[in-house]
Amino acid sequence: MKLSPEKQKNLILTAVVTATVIGGLWFLGIQGLKKKQVNDNKKLAKLQVDVKARSDAIQKEIDSRAQASAYQAFLVSFEEKMPRGNPPDTWLVKELGALAKRHHLELLNTALQPIKELSDFKFKDQPYQLVGFHFEFKGELSQIGKFLETIENSMPMVEVDEIHIISGSEVAPHIHTVDMRIAIITKS
């Protein structure tokens, strides 16, 4: 069948228009939808990750708060036991003096001493520091032991840093002289 030139022209035009429409629909419609589907899947995956991360962050924050409040309670109760005053020697003389009196001992030559090295070792980058408190007393070994025990048991913020016990003279060898330094935690 032979087509007239006009028909041929119409045919080519129609074919071009049809192919363009089909191509446009295919690429813009179907491929666009497919691309959107891929992107939506990625978006959903990202959203799910974000939701999980946010949900975890909330849970972690709630857990942290519960734990932090437990730690805070511990810190508050501990800080209440810390020596008061800055410098704290008045408080220490009063408290340790009372303890010593209970054991029939008397504190002598009290002095505050900085112990920076040990303080840095234990409380570096913390709002606490160790303060050395030096004092002397005399007594029998059993009394000294009990006094030491009372200090260590009733004052958790205290650690005996140095202790020097020397036996007494020939006249009273059972009376020992104690030269002691305790390290106490205070707020820096």
């Binding site: 932090a68 511990f74 810190l75 409380f123 709002p127 260590e152 005996v160």
Partner: peptide
């Protein structure tokens, strides 16, 4: 807060108690 509490806790737990040794 945890580091602060741990520092205190460690001090209390690891301090050397001389009364016992004496």
């Amino acid at each position: 807060i945890q580091a602060q509490a741990n520092a205190i806790q460690n001090h209390m737990e690891y301090r050397t108690l001389f009364a016992t040794q004496l």
